[in-house]
């Protein structure tokens, strides 16, 4: 079988005919394999869902227990139709996985989903899986994206908290994954005081703690007076009246996009923090070099840059132009 007979793009998402399943479908399908719990990859309403136990738990928290007809936790190689699938850590968020699809005869394909090679206390590290076709994102697929060491960004946050001790620091972070990554990084940087979290991320933080991730003391950022200098909230909260309880706050935002000043300005941010849970340019190009696949397929992002790099470096590559995935959720 050729690679595009094993996996090809459809309006619902990537489809595998010999196994009759979709990977990260953006519309309801009979059988879905899901890489991770971000809303653009994990949607409710599928007939059955195969994913890591943590991704299934996260989907239940976000959509309710009945988010799918049937669920099955991924554990070891699983035979589906005429292919074997297996899940491998992607280093993106808690529970995130790459999905390897191995046919009996033909090329092995790894769909990496969203992934990162920057170590995070919140999830297992990316595991390189040798393959013939590597399916990659290109969220930060331009050579300007070289994310700094997160510890350096944390040092900048700490410096600002020291420089402006009377001002609360409100850091925008996506509720699932980024928020917990930022909290864990803050702990690693030596911030021991209680960190306040917006109500929208309470249950997801609780779940991380249940899974054994040390987030330290967290308090809700809901009272009129929030006794914490560091507050984590989804970016969307900054345009609501919720912010008004804070006196003269420093508004920050944790995102890979903050590396570009114009992006930071659009968001009205005073303290841009370049903290990402996606591969940056050196990581994505190094991963392709490491795996040395016969072919590279690019799902979403700034694929033109990565296509050009593959061309310059002799990797046959093609864009899948999958629609429905966000750049990096904000």
């Amino acid at each position: 079988m050729r690679a595009d007979q094993i996996l090809h793009p459809t309006p619902q998402g990537l489809y595998c005919p010999p196994g009759d399943f979709h990977i990260d479908p953006t519309r309801p399908v009979a059988r879905a394999l899901i890489t991770h719990g971000h809303a653009d990859h994990a949607r409710a309403g599928h007939g059955s869902v195969l994913a890591t136990q943590q991704t299934l738990d996260i989907m239940a928290i976000r959509y309710g227990e009945d988010f799918a007809g049937q669920v099955q936790p991924a554990d070891g190689p699983i035979r589906i139709g005429d292919v074997t699938v297996s899940f491998h850590p992607a280093g993106h968020i808690l529970g995130s996985a790459q999905i390897a699809v191995t046919p009996d005869h033909g090329p092995k394909i790894v769909v990496s989903g969203d992934y990162s090679r920057t170590p995070s206390p919140t999830c297992a590290p990316f595991e390189p899986v040798p393959c013939d076709v590597f399916v990659t994102e290109a969220t930060f697929g331009l050579p300007v994206f070289k994310h700094p060491d997160p510890a350096v960004e944390m040092a900048r946050l700490l410096a600002s908290m020291t420089e402006f001790p009377e001002r609360p620091h409100l850091i925008g972070a996506y509720s699932l994954g980024k928020a917990q990554r930022v909290i864990a990084l803050a702990r690693a940087a030596g911030i021991d005081a209680p960190i306040a979290i917006h109500g929208a991320m309470q249950r997801l933080c609780d779940y991380h703690i249940e899974q054994g991730i040390d987030l330290g003391p967290l308090i809700p950022a809901t009272a009129d007076q929030v006794p914490a200098q560091l507050v984590i909230a989804p970016q969307s909260a900054f345009s609501t009246a919720w912010v008004q309880r804070f006196r003269d706050p420093v508004i920050g935002f944790a995102s890979g996009w903050m590396a570009v000043r114009a992006r930071a300005r659009q968001n009205g941010v005073e303290l841009p923090l370049v903290i990402s849970d996606h591969v940056d340019w050196p990581q994505v190009t190094q991963t392709i070099r490491d795996l040395f696949p016969a072919e590279v397929w690019i799902t979403h992002g700034t694929e033109d840059g990565l296509l050009r790099w593959c061309e310059l470096n002799g990797f046959p590559a093609r864009p899948l132009r999958l629609v429905g995935y966000e750049d990096e959720p904000e």
């Binding site: 331009l142 050579p143 300007v144 570009v260 000043r261 700034t302 050009r308 790099w309």
Partner: peptide, 26 residues
């Protein structure tokens, strides 16, 4: 130092010459 096409794509995205060069410099 940098492939012209990659530079153009990057400059389009970043929008500022000095910033693009600072970021892309290998």
């Amino acid at each position: 130092r940098v492939d012209a096409q990659l530079f153009t794509l990057s400059y389009d995205f970043v929008g500022d010459l000095a910033e693009t060069i600072a970021l892309i410099w290998d």
